[in-house]
Simulated scan of single mutants.
Amino acid sequence: MRCFASCLEIKLELREVMVLESFVYQKNSSYFAQVAENVEPLAERELTGLGATQVNPVYRGVYFTATPETLYRIVYQTRLCTRVLAPLLHFDCHSTKYLYKTALTIPWVELFDREQTFVITATVSDSKITHSQYASLCLKDAIVDQFQEKFGARPNVDKRNPDLVFNLHIHKNTAVISLDASGASLHRRGYRQETVEAPIQESLAAAILDLTEWNGERTLIDPMCGSGTLLCEGLMRYCRIPASYLRESFGFMRFPDFEPEAWQRVKEDADSLIRPLPEGLITGSDAAKLAVKAARINLGQLPYGKEVPVHSSRFQELAPISDAVIVSNPPYGVRLGAQAEAAALVGELGSFLKHKCTGSTAYLYFGDRELVKKIGLKPAWKKPLSNGGLDGVLAKYEMY
């Protein structure tokens, strides 16, 4: 399906459009980091710590400026951001026709060649253009038509493993076309080789650990660890392992102004800060043997991960825990008819914390907020956090 029947008319109209001399991110050193809802303040602090300037959090994202080296550092080390976007062009956009026409002014042939693949992610809200998929199609047509006219051949779209990821965002009739500095979503750390039902997203686990303010002074324990995501993120946090340590490719490597030597300096500097894990500092357990196996495999992908003990045990049978930080994501009944089972389990967990965890602090993430009422404990605070499509909550409990 083509956006327009006549390309000739478009080419004539293009004479009225100024061809870009450089991209927005090159002019302003400006970028946008995507984050989950309610994580914006944490991401603002993280980005500032990684060297970003002019940091401005907004709904589900953070605007910032950065040098190329700082950009590479952020993409390599951020635990909370899922994507980092480099804007190519901002423009008013009230129709798909104008979207196509304006997109043709971007020198796509300078960004990649016809042998490389690409994909477009698109979001549309409160605009005359109402369908994100059709807007994405129009942008795709502009890209391939430019290649077709110049080379007589088109680059291919690859939704699974593209060389480049472009992002189209249209809000209130203002469009931004960006190049994704991340490549694949940054929540995919690479350590998750095995999984169990309803795993917690890696960037959410990192946000939970941020909110615990755990710094390694007390033991970190997950008594229902599942496939070990919270344990892995705790390990990476304490040992200073960059969040993307296991990844080999990033979107910024295909930027037209990529600086390989700067990237190597950033990577070497970050990797040099990795430190050993003290014995017994992080531990986990789970009643399901398959979950324990998965957690061990996933931890084993990371430096010092094999030193994290993971036991096969019901939390009810664990020895008393004192002066520790307990963090967990209890099952919340994702299977049909399992809600009652989850509620009963949470009630037992509350009893375990009250009677066997003196002096400890517990942070529990509930994918179903109703389960907070079933634990039988009064939380010190509750903070809403989303996990995929789930509207969950993190609750803190002090055990005296």
Rank of each mutant, 00 (worst) to 15 (best):
R254P: 02
A205V: 10
V157W: 05
K374E: 11
L235P: 10
Y397L: 03
R60Q: 15
V24F: 15
A43C: 13
L12Y: 08
T117K: 11
K159S: 11
I120W: 12
G51D: 06
G51F: 05
K11T: 11
V266E: 03
T123Y: 07
T70D: 06
L230Q: 09
V165E: 08
F147E: 03
S272K: 14
Y59V: 14
C3W: 09
R275L: 06
V176Q: 08
S244L: 03
E261K: 14
V75W: 04
A33I: 04
P87I: 10
T130F: 07
S22G: 05
Y25V: 04
N329I: 04
L8C: 04
L371K: 01
E233N: 09
L85V: 05
S351T: 14
I208P: 11
R160M: 07
D180Q: 02
K306G: 15
Q116F: 05
E259T: 09
A294V: 04
K172S: 14
H94T: 14
P242Y: 12
P309T: 07
K382R: 15
A362P: 04
T96V: 10
K306S: 11
E21K: 13
D145C: 01
A175N: 06
V144I: 15
A342S: 09
D92M: 00
H355K: 11
H311W: 07
I106H: 04
E16I: 00
E13R: 15
V35H: 04
R218C: 03
D180W: 11
A36I: 03
C239R: 05
I170R: 06
A66V: 09
T67V: 12
M224S: 11
S386I: 12
E37T: 12
K140Y: 05
R192D: 05
F147L: 02
S182W: 11
R335N: 04
I297R: 12
L231P: 12
I274K: 04
F118N: 05
E202G: 05
K97M: 03
N298S: 08
L281D: 13
Y72L: 07
E21W: 00
G280W: 03
M1T: 13
L231S: 09
K11A: 09
G347W: 00
S386H: 13
A262K: 13
I282H: 09
G226L: 05
R247F: 06
A342L: 05
P162I: 04
D163V: 09
S249Q: 14
T82Q: 10
R83D: 08
A153G: 02
R335P: 12
P278K: 11
T102A: 12
C138S: 13
T361C: 01
Y397S: 00
K383N: 07
E370P: 00
G350F: 03
P68L: 07
D368C: 01
K159F: 08
T219M: 12
R218V: 15
L89C: 01
M18S: 10
G337Y: 12
I129L: 02
V196R: 00
I326V: 09
S22L: 12
W108P: 05
W263Y: 14
G49A: 13
A288Q: 14
I10D: 08
L20V: 06
N38H: 15
G183F: 12
T195E: 14
G305M: 07
F250G: 01
S203W: 02
I143H: 01
Q54E: 14
A207D: 09
Y100V: 08
L204P: 10
K150I: 15
L385M: 10
G152H: 02
R114G: 02
L88Y: 09
V17D: 01
L42E: 10
A184L: 08
A205W: 10
